[in-house]
Computed example of a mutant assay.
Amino acid sequence: MKVGFIGIGSMGSLLIDSLVGSGALEPSNITASNRTFAKAEKLAMQHPGLHAVQHNSDAVIGQDIIFLCIKPLEFKPVLEEISGIVREDQIIVSITSPVMIKQLEELLPCKIAKVIPSITNYVCCGATLCMFGNRLNESDMSRLKRLFSAISTPLIIDEKHTRIVSDISSCGPAFMAYVLQCFIDAAVQETGISREEAVVVASAMLLGTGQLLTDGGMSPEALQARVSVPGGITAQALALLEQELSGVFNAVIQTTHAKYEEDLERVALSLNGKEVNGP
């Protein structure tokens, strides 16, 4: 299987690193282009055998799957560059949430999918969110799911739920890391424990918590009940958190959705000069 990547920024390079590191792809089967060619050359040095090319068209010709790992407003010039050379049997995979599958199907003759990765894929865990266009057959979908199974748990979702599921799966690691950072900072300030020790303990705690919520079969509510004794230390702290954090994550979701709606409008105007009301 030959795979092309257009754009190797944060998520594009993460996907390549993960897929190569897991053994799902050999570097020799990957062709990558980037607006800054030196970045593609550097990636090729990190993964000997990977083909760095200067033109996006060269990342399309001869490939079975082509990943578009670019920003929303970069789609129009890239699509104009590749639309005349994409074959109907090729699969284009966008990892950009506000670009709709329907929009890509209107502008390209090939098969279209959308996949939202997560930084957790770097250590071959977490989810990848998969959405498939109408032109993909069962074999195409199975091929993509097998590819992503090497670095994650592929989850098939409805495109209309892209934002909220992305909030949890893709933005969530940053949100939880921020909460953990605040916990660590407070521990250091209040007690004098070294930051290094607090980071080690807190990180191990978060890993174990994730395993309890997955392999351990616990729900968040059940985990709290198991740790918290009525009238005890944990119960008092949880009561404080409930009071202080009330509505915080509602506001977080409202913020991400507002930005998403803004991006949807900007992408629609960029691609076809008209507004949309969402997916």
Rank of each mutant, 00 (worst) to 15 (best):
A52D: 06
D58L: 04
F183V: 05
R143T: 15
H257S: 12
Y260G: 09
Q189P: 02
V199I: 09
K42D: 15
S142E: 10
S203W: 03
A59I: 02
L79I: 06
P72A: 09
K71Y: 10
E74M: 09
L19W: 10
G210A: 09
D158R: 02
S194Y: 07
K114C: 06
I6E: 11
L213D: 00
I65A: 06
K274Y: 00
G278L: 00
G172C: 02
L147F: 01
R146P: 06
P109H: 02
C110E: 05
L147T: 03
T191P: 05
G62K: 01
D215Y: 15
T120D: 13
S28P: 09
Q90G: 03
G208P: 00
S139C: 14
G231P: 02
C110S: 03
I95H: 14
Q103I: 04
P154I: 04
S169V: 03
G217A: 01
L14G: 13
Q90F: 01
I66C: 08
G192H: 12
L240S: 15
A187D: 08
H55N: 11
V248E: 15
D263N: 14
L129Q: 10
L180W: 06
F5P: 01
V227T: 08
A251S: 12
T255Y: 13
I61C: 10
D89F: 09
K111D: 06
T162E: 13
A258P: 08
H257W: 13
D140K: 12
E221Q: 03
V20M: 11
C125W: 14
H51D: 15
A268Y: 02
V86G: 07
K145N: 07
I233N: 12
L19C: 07
F67K: 01
S219L: 00
M205C: 11
G4A: 12
E196N: 05
I66W: 07
T153W: 03
F148S: 08
A40M: 09
L155Q: 11
I16M: 05
L108Y: 05
V248W: 14
D158C: 11
Q243T: 09
S228K: 04
R135C: 13
G208A: 04
T36N: 10
K42N: 14
V188M: 04
N137P: 09
Y178E: 15
A225D: 06
L50C: 00
K42E: 15
A174W: 03
E190D: 11
R146F: 12
I116R: 01
L108V: 03
M11P: 00
E262T: 09
I66Y: 06
D89A: 05
N34I: 01
S152E: 07
I95G: 11
E265S: 02
P173V: 04
R195M: 10
I184P: 12
V227M: 14
G172T: 00
A239G: 04
V60N: 05
K39R: 13
I16D: 08
R35P: 07
T214W: 11
V53Q: 10
G273P: 07
V115D: 12
G84W: 05
M11T: 04
G84Y: 15
E81R: 05
S97N: 13
I168A: 06
G210D: 01
Q254E: 12
D215L: 15
R195S: 07
D89Y: 02
S194N: 07
G126R: 14
E41F: 10
D185Q: 11
